[in-house]
Design a binder for these strands. Structure first.
Ligand SMILES: [Mn+2]
Ligand SMILES: [Mn+2]
Ligand SMILES: [Zn+2]
Ligand SMILES: [Zn+2]
Lengths: 143, 143
DNA sequence: CGCCTATTGAAAAACTTTTACAATAAGGAA
DNA sequence: TTCCTTATTGTAAAAGTTTTTCAATAGGCG
């Protein structure tokens, strides 16, 4: 389902800031911080406020329209999310984030950990970091 | 190796704030934020500053003496770290963090993801969340 | 013990996120 | 289309977090 329909069905309005934030996130391959989103939109002539960016990001995350990713440097980035369970892999060179499917991804490990710790596991946080295909090629060329 | 020897060998001094922060972290089972560490130490009569807590945590992390964990609510906590590759599982009830061994833990999944995305994976972020044995028992009793 | 300088604490600055509230605009109804 | 209701916005201020600066202090070696 399209994000605008989802918003509407959930009882929220399709406001200008919401459109702008979603459009910006959809236009980039790299996770963006709240401030970066705000600054880019302003640079494009948009009139929204930083407060609205924060509010919009919070809403979109709560609806599962976007995901938070932890950047290696410590900041929090946001990226559009597809439906269902998945995780992200981040390129350490160009900072692109790519989704990968995550169903059953950790079943074996979770089983091990539950035995080992006697915890009951109900959730997890998983991200990979590495080098994307494009950046691998660039390294080869320069070598 | 004991953390004080490690600090010394790396050319750092064993200062009062460093002792106090490490002692506090070693005394608790739950990850503590910089501010929480500061406030607890002050409550105990320690004279250190919050700035020193930040500086100490940064140093200890860089030396691998402690680890950062992402709390579900969004804050960053710190816990003493044992040597070697490992991850943490956090109890959603009592907030305890428990290490589990992590060598080869994701080898199979990484292989899949590399094929699927063509990334070259070099690092990962992994945490589990669940309920610890103690808190499981408490639920049973009250039921 | 005494020196050297790594480390600290205080204060300010910088940066990030949240709150309050009046003005605005989204979208359903007429 | 216009009107009405109220969700949403923007501004400003507050609150919260982390970093920087620099003079004073104290850790540890000679
Ligand atoms: Mn998963
Ligand atoms: Mn691992
Ligand atoms: Zn790349
Ligand atoms: Zn527990």
């Amino acid at each position: 389902m399209d994000w605008q329909k989802l918003l509407t069905q959930a009882g929220f309005r399709i406001s200008k800031p919401r459109k702008q934030v979603m459009q910006l996130l959809e236009s980039t391959q790299t996770p963006q911080t709240a401030l970066a989103i705000y600054q880019q939109l302003r640079a494009q002539g948009a009139r929204l406020s930083l407060v609205s960016v924060y509010r919009t990001l919070e809403l979109f995350v709560s609806l599962g329209l976007i995901s938070m990713v932890y950047e290696p440097e410590g900041s929090l980035g946001y990226v559009p999310a597809s439906a269902g369970h998945h995780h992200y892999i981040l390129c350490q060179v160009c900072h692109r984030a790519v989704e990968f499917a995550g169903t059953e991804d950790l079943a074996g490990l979770i089983y091990q950990v539950e035995n080992q710790t006697q915890f009951l596991v109900s959730d997890h946080l998983l991200q990979f970091f590495g080098v994307c295909p494009k950046c691998q090629n660039k390294s080869k060329e320069s070598a």
